[in-house]
Protein backbone atom coordinates (compact mmCIF):
# COMPACT_ATOMS: atom_id res chain seq x y z
CA UNK A 1 0.00 0.00 0.00
CA UNK A 2 2.91 2.25 0.64
CA UNK A 3 3.92 1.64 -2.96
CA UNK A 4 0.66 3.05 -4.26
CA UNK A 5 1.00 6.24 -2.29
CA UNK A 6 4.50 6.95 -3.55
CA UNK A 7 4.17 9.54 -6.33
CA UNK A 8 7.53 8.69 -7.86
CA UNK A 9 6.34 5.30 -9.04
CA UNK A 10 2.97 6.42 -10.31
CA UNK A 11 2.70 6.24 -14.10
CA UNK A 12 4.78 4.28 -16.59
CA UNK A 13 8.50 4.79 -17.11
CA UNK A 14 7.75 5.84 -20.69
CA UNK A 15 5.73 8.75 -19.42
CA UNK A 16 8.50 9.71 -17.00
CA UNK A 17 11.02 9.61 -19.82
CA UNK A 18 8.77 11.80 -22.01
CA UNK A 19 8.49 14.39 -19.28
CA UNK A 20 12.25 14.31 -18.65
CA UNK A 21 13.02 14.83 -22.32
CA UNK A 22 10.64 17.74 -22.62
CA UNK A 23 12.28 19.59 -19.72
CA UNK A 24 15.94 18.75 -20.50
CA UNK A 25 15.79 19.77 -24.15
CA UNK A 26 15.40 16.32 -25.65
CA UNK A 27 19.04 15.26 -25.28
CA UNK A 28 19.90 11.73 -24.27
CA UNK A 29 21.23 11.60 -20.69
CA UNK A 30 24.72 10.15 -21.44
CA UNK A 31 26.35 11.07 -18.16
CA UNK A 32 23.39 9.71 -16.28
CA UNK A 33 23.57 6.43 -18.14
CA UNK A 34 27.32 6.06 -17.52
CA UNK A 35 26.80 6.81 -13.85
CA UNK A 36 24.01 4.26 -13.67
CA UNK A 37 26.20 1.60 -15.31
CA UNK A 38 29.08 2.31 -12.92
CA UNK A 39 26.77 1.89 -9.96
CA UNK A 40 25.38 -1.31 -11.43
CA UNK A 41 28.91 -2.67 -11.86
CA UNK A 42 29.71 -1.87 -8.25
CA UNK A 43 26.61 -3.74 -7.17
CA UNK A 44 27.39 -6.71 -9.41
CA UNK A 45 30.89 -6.87 -7.99
CA UNK A 46 29.64 -7.39 -4.44
CA UNK A 47 27.05 -9.87 -5.61
CA UNK A 48 29.64 -11.83 -7.58
CA UNK A 49 32.04 -11.98 -4.63
CA UNK A 50 29.27 -13.27 -2.39
CA UNK A 51 28.17 -15.75 -5.05
CA UNK A 52 31.71 -17.08 -5.50
CA UNK A 53 32.04 -17.60 -1.74
CA UNK A 54 28.72 -19.37 -1.45
CA UNK A 55 29.24 -21.54 -4.54
CA UNK A 56 32.77 -22.45 -3.44
CA UNK A 57 31.59 -23.42 0.03
CA UNK A 58 28.58 -25.33 -1.26
CA UNK A 59 30.68 -27.36 -3.71
CA UNK A 60 33.19 -28.25 -1.01
CA UNK A 61 30.71 -28.92 1.74
CA UNK A 62 28.00 -30.51 -0.37
CA UNK A 63 28.83 -34.11 0.47
CA UNK A 64 28.73 -33.44 4.21
CA UNK A 65 25.48 -31.53 3.99
CA UNK A 66 23.69 -34.05 1.80
CA UNK A 67 25.02 -37.29 3.24
CA UNK A 68 25.00 -36.62 6.98
CA UNK A 69 23.37 -33.28 7.67
CA UNK A 70 21.58 -34.63 10.75
CA UNK A 71 24.70 -36.14 12.30
CA UNK A 72 26.73 -33.08 11.40
CA UNK A 73 24.37 -30.66 13.09
CA UNK A 74 23.81 -32.82 16.17
CA UNK A 75 27.34 -34.24 16.50
CA UNK A 76 30.28 -33.18 18.66
CA UNK A 77 33.86 -32.13 17.92
CA UNK A 78 36.09 -35.04 17.01
CA UNK A 79 39.55 -35.96 15.84
CA UNK A 80 38.05 -37.54 12.74
CA UNK A 81 36.41 -35.30 10.13
CA UNK A 82 33.90 -38.04 9.27
CA UNK A 83 32.61 -38.05 12.85
CA UNK A 84 32.76 -34.30 13.48
CA UNK A 85 29.69 -32.28 14.31
CA UNK A 86 28.95 -28.70 15.22
CA UNK A 87 26.28 -28.90 17.93
CA UNK A 88 28.63 -27.54 20.61
CA UNK A 89 29.58 -24.68 18.33
CA UNK A 90 25.93 -23.91 17.58
CA UNK A 91 25.20 -23.86 21.29
CA UNK A 92 28.04 -21.42 22.00
CA UNK A 93 27.05 -19.17 19.12
CA UNK A 94 23.39 -19.30 20.22
CA UNK A 95 24.27 -18.10 23.73
CA UNK A 96 26.59 -15.41 22.43
CA UNK A 97 23.64 -14.18 20.36
CA UNK A 98 21.41 -14.23 23.44
CA UNK A 99 23.90 -12.20 25.46
CA UNK A 100 24.23 -9.69 22.64
CA UNK A 101 20.47 -9.29 22.36
CA UNK A 102 19.88 -9.11 26.11
CA UNK A 103 22.82 -6.90 27.09
CA UNK A 104 24.16 -4.94 24.13
CA UNK A 105 20.82 -4.02 22.57
CA UNK A 106 19.07 -2.44 25.58
CA UNK A 107 22.27 -0.77 26.81
CA UNK A 108 23.18 0.50 23.38
CA UNK A 109 19.75 1.78 22.44
CA UNK A 110 19.32 3.42 25.85
CA UNK A 111 22.70 5.14 25.50
CA UNK A 112 21.77 6.36 22.04
CA UNK A 113 18.43 7.73 23.27
CA UNK A 114 20.19 9.55 26.05
CA UNK A 115 22.85 10.98 23.76
CA UNK A 116 20.35 12.10 21.12
CA UNK A 117 17.29 13.08 23.11
CA UNK A 118 18.60 14.26 26.45
CA UNK A 119 22.25 15.28 26.28
CA UNK A 120 23.24 18.76 25.09
CA UNK A 121 24.67 18.14 21.67
CA UNK A 122 27.12 20.92 21.98
CA UNK A 123 28.35 20.19 25.47
CA UNK A 124 31.95 19.10 25.64
CA UNK A 125 31.20 15.98 27.61
CA UNK A 126 28.62 14.81 25.08
CA UNK A 127 30.97 15.45 22.18
CA UNK A 128 33.82 13.73 23.99
CA UNK A 129 31.68 10.68 24.62
CA UNK A 130 30.43 10.69 21.03
CA UNK A 131 33.95 10.75 19.59
CA UNK A 132 35.05 8.03 21.97
CA UNK A 133 32.22 5.72 21.09
CA UNK A 134 33.00 6.17 17.40
CA UNK A 135 36.61 5.27 18.09
CA UNK A 136 35.61 2.24 20.10
CA UNK A 137 33.61 0.95 17.15
CA UNK A 138 36.85 0.83 15.18
CA UNK A 139 38.96 -0.91 17.82
CA UNK A 140 40.18 -4.32 16.56
CA UNK A 141 38.24 -7.20 18.01
CA UNK A 142 41.30 -8.84 19.60
CA UNK A 143 41.57 -5.84 21.88
CA UNK A 144 38.07 -6.58 23.12
CA UNK A 145 39.26 -10.16 23.58
CA UNK A 146 42.00 -8.89 25.87
CA UNK A 147 39.43 -6.81 27.73
CA UNK A 148 37.25 -9.89 28.12
CA UNK A 149 40.22 -11.90 29.35
CA UNK A 150 41.18 -9.30 31.94
CA UNK A 151 37.73 -8.31 33.08
CA UNK A 152 35.51 -11.37 32.78
CA UNK A 153 37.89 -14.35 32.71
CA UNK A 154 40.47 -13.17 35.26
CA UNK A 155 38.71 -10.65 37.49
CA UNK A 156 35.21 -12.11 37.45
CA UNK A 157 36.18 -15.72 36.72
CA UNK A 158 34.78 -16.90 40.03
CA UNK A 159 31.31 -15.71 39.01
CA UNK A 160 31.16 -16.37 35.28
CA UNK A 161 32.99 -19.68 35.33
CA UNK A 162 33.83 -21.11 38.76
CA UNK A 163 34.49 -24.56 37.30
CA UNK A 164 36.21 -23.48 34.10
CA UNK A 165 38.71 -20.87 35.30
CA UNK A 166 36.40 -18.21 33.96
CA UNK A 167 36.59 -19.53 30.40
CA UNK A 168 32.83 -19.88 30.03
CA UNK A 169 30.28 -18.91 27.44
CA UNK A 170 29.10 -16.19 29.85
CA UNK A 171 32.51 -14.50 29.63
CA UNK A 172 32.39 -14.86 25.86
CA UNK A 173 28.85 -13.50 25.63
CA UNK A 174 29.69 -10.50 27.79
CA UNK A 175 32.85 -9.79 25.80
CA UNK A 176 31.04 -9.83 22.48
CA UNK A 177 28.15 -7.81 23.90
CA UNK A 178 30.67 -5.10 24.81
CA UNK A 179 32.33 -5.46 21.42
CA UNK A 180 29.14 -4.64 19.53
CA UNK A 181 27.91 -2.03 22.00
CA UNK A 182 29.52 0.94 20.18
CA UNK A 183 28.03 -0.25 16.89
CA UNK A 184 24.56 -0.43 18.43
CA UNK A 185 24.96 3.03 19.97
CA UNK A 186 26.19 4.67 16.77
CA UNK A 187 23.60 3.17 14.44
CA UNK A 188 20.77 3.83 16.90
CA UNK A 189 21.92 7.41 17.38
CA UNK A 190 22.00 7.89 13.60
CA UNK A 191 18.47 6.52 13.34
CA UNK A 192 17.26 8.87 16.08
CA UNK A 193 19.02 11.80 14.46
CA UNK A 194 17.16 11.08 11.23
CA UNK A 195 13.80 11.67 12.94
CA UNK A 196 12.58 15.08 11.71
CA UNK A 197 12.82 17.81 14.31
CA UNK A 198 9.23 18.74 13.53
CA UNK A 199 7.88 15.52 14.98
CA UNK A 200 9.39 16.34 18.35
CA UNK A 201 8.36 19.98 18.19
CA UNK A 202 4.78 18.99 17.36
CA UNK A 203 4.75 16.69 20.37
CA UNK A 204 6.11 19.33 22.72
CA UNK A 205 3.70 21.81 21.17
CA UNK A 206 0.66 19.89 22.38
CA UNK A 207 2.13 19.60 25.85
CA UNK A 208 3.71 16.14 25.75
CA UNK A 209 6.64 15.50 28.09
CA UNK A 210 10.05 14.51 26.71
CA UNK A 211 9.40 10.92 27.75
CA UNK A 212 6.06 10.86 25.93
CA UNK A 213 7.53 12.38 22.79
CA UNK A 214 10.40 9.89 22.81
CA UNK A 215 8.20 6.90 23.58
CA UNK A 216 5.28 7.60 21.24
CA UNK A 217 6.79 9.57 18.39
CA UNK A 218 10.56 9.42 18.12
CA UNK A 219 11.14 5.73 18.91
CA UNK A 220 8.45 4.32 16.59
CA UNK A 221 9.79 6.52 13.81
CA UNK A 222 13.38 5.47 14.41
CA UNK A 223 12.65 1.79 15.11
CA UNK A 224 13.41 0.45 11.60
CA UNK A 225 16.76 2.23 11.54
CA UNK A 226 17.63 1.04 15.03
CA UNK A 227 16.74 -2.51 14.08
CA UNK A 228 18.98 -2.39 11.01
CA UNK A 229 21.88 -1.40 13.24
CA UNK A 230 21.17 -4.10 15.77
CA UNK A 231 21.02 -6.71 13.02
CA UNK A 232 24.49 -5.72 11.82
CA UNK A 233 25.73 -5.87 15.41
CA UNK A 234 24.23 -9.30 15.99
CA UNK A 235 25.74 -10.68 12.80
CA UNK A 236 29.10 -9.29 13.85
CA UNK A 237 28.96 -10.91 17.27
CA UNK A 238 27.94 -14.27 15.82
CA UNK A 239 30.84 -14.25 13.38
CA UNK A 240 33.73 -13.07 15.57
CA UNK A 241 36.48 -15.60 16.33
CA UNK A 242 39.48 -13.59 17.51
CA UNK A 243 38.09 -12.38 20.88
CA UNK A 244 36.82 -15.88 21.63
CA UNK A 245 40.29 -17.35 21.27
CA UNK A 246 41.50 -14.98 23.98
CA UNK A 247 38.50 -15.60 26.20
CA UNK A 248 39.35 -19.30 26.00
CA UNK A 249 36.98 -21.03 23.62
CA UNK A 250 38.00 -24.67 23.29
CA UNK A 251 39.65 -25.43 19.97
CA UNK A 252 40.60 -29.08 20.12
CA UNK A 253 37.99 -31.21 21.76
CA UNK A 254 35.06 -30.76 24.07
CA UNK A 255 32.85 -33.42 25.57
CA UNK A 256 29.44 -32.34 26.74
CA UNK A 257 28.28 -28.84 25.86
CA UNK A 258 25.42 -30.17 23.76
CA UNK A 259 22.46 -29.18 25.97
CA UNK A 260 21.22 -25.92 24.50
CA UNK A 261 19.03 -24.79 27.35
CA UNK A 262 20.99 -26.19 30.30
CA UNK A 263 21.57 -22.97 32.23
CA UNK A 264 23.88 -24.72 34.70
CA UNK A 265 26.28 -25.52 31.86
CA UNK A 266 26.72 -21.83 31.02
CA UNK A 267 29.70 -21.69 33.37
CA UNK A 268 31.42 -24.69 31.71
CA UNK A 269 34.01 -24.60 28.96
CA UNK A 270 32.55 -23.85 25.55
CA UNK A 271 33.26 -23.44 21.89
CA UNK A 272 31.56 -21.51 19.08
CA UNK A 273 31.01 -21.91 15.35
CA UNK A 274 33.67 -19.39 14.20
CA UNK A 275 36.20 -21.10 16.48
CA UNK A 276 35.32 -24.51 15.06
CA UNK A 277 35.71 -23.12 11.55
CA UNK A 278 39.13 -21.58 12.30
CA UNK A 279 40.37 -24.78 13.95
CA UNK A 280 39.13 -27.12 11.26
CA UNK A 281 40.40 -24.90 8.47
CA UNK A 282 43.92 -25.45 9.82
CA UNK A 283 43.73 -29.22 9.86
CA UNK A 284 45.21 -31.23 6.98
CA UNK A 285 43.28 -33.47 4.62
CA UNK A 286 40.29 -33.42 2.30
CA UNK A 287 37.87 -34.46 5.03
CA UNK A 288 38.52 -31.34 7.08
CA UNK A 289 38.13 -29.11 4.03
CA UNK A 290 34.59 -30.33 3.44
CA UNK A 291 33.46 -30.21 7.08
CA UNK A 292 34.91 -26.69 7.35
CA UNK A 293 32.95 -25.63 4.28
CA UNK A 294 29.82 -27.23 5.70
CA UNK A 295 30.30 -25.42 9.02
CA UNK A 296 30.72 -22.12 7.15
CA UNK A 297 27.44 -22.74 5.32
CA UNK A 298 25.69 -23.44 8.63
CA UNK A 299 27.12 -20.22 10.10
CA UNK A 300 25.89 -18.30 7.05
CA UNK A 301 22.44 -19.81 7.50
CA UNK A 302 22.43 -18.91 11.22
CA UNK A 303 23.34 -15.30 10.46
CA UNK A 304 20.77 -15.24 7.65
CA UNK A 305 18.02 -16.50 9.98
CA UNK A 306 18.93 -13.84 12.57
CA UNK A 307 18.84 -11.18 9.85
CA UNK A 308 15.55 -12.43 8.45
CA UNK A 309 13.95 -12.28 11.88
CA UNK A 310 15.06 -8.67 12.28
CA UNK A 311 13.89 -7.72 8.80
CA UNK A 312 10.45 -9.18 9.54
CA UNK A 313 10.37 -7.16 12.77
CA UNK A 314 11.43 -4.04 10.90
CA UNK A 315 8.69 -4.49 8.32
CA UNK A 316 6.17 -4.69 11.15
CA UNK A 317 7.42 -1.39 12.57
CA UNK A 318 7.43 0.10 9.09
CA UNK A 319 3.76 -0.76 8.67
CA UNK A 320 2.90 0.68 12.07
CA UNK A 321 4.60 3.88 11.15
CA UNK A 322 2.47 3.93 8.01
Amino acid sequence: MSVMSNPATVGSTAATERVRRSITGGKADVKGTIFMLLMLMALLMSVVILAVLVIDMVTQGRTVLTERLGDFVTGSMSSQPEASGILQGLRGTFWIGVFTVVIAFPLGIASAIYLEEYAHHKSRVARFIDVNIRNLAGVPSVVYGILGLTLFVKAMGGIVGPNSNGRSVIAAGLTLAILVLPIVIITSAEALRAVPRGIREAGFGVGATRWEVTRHHVLPYAAPGILTGTVLALARSLGEAAPLILVGATTGYLSGGTEFLDLGALTDRFTALPIIITTWAGRPGEGWVSVTAAAIIVLLVVVLVANAAAILLRNRFDKKRG
Partner: peptide
Protein backbone atom coordinates in the same frame (compact mmCIF):
# COMPACT_ATOMS: atom_id res chain seq x y z
CA UNK B 1 32.08 -41.42 30.91
CA UNK B 2 29.39 -39.25 29.36
CA UNK B 3 29.06 -37.07 32.49
CA UNK B 4 32.66 -35.93 32.55
CA UNK B 5 33.53 -32.76 30.69
CA UNK B 6 36.78 -33.19 28.80
CA UNK B 7 38.37 -30.27 26.96
CA UNK B 8 41.50 -30.41 24.82
CA UNK B 9 43.36 -27.44 23.37
CA UNK B 10 46.65 -27.17 21.52
Amino acid sequence: NPDVNVTVDG
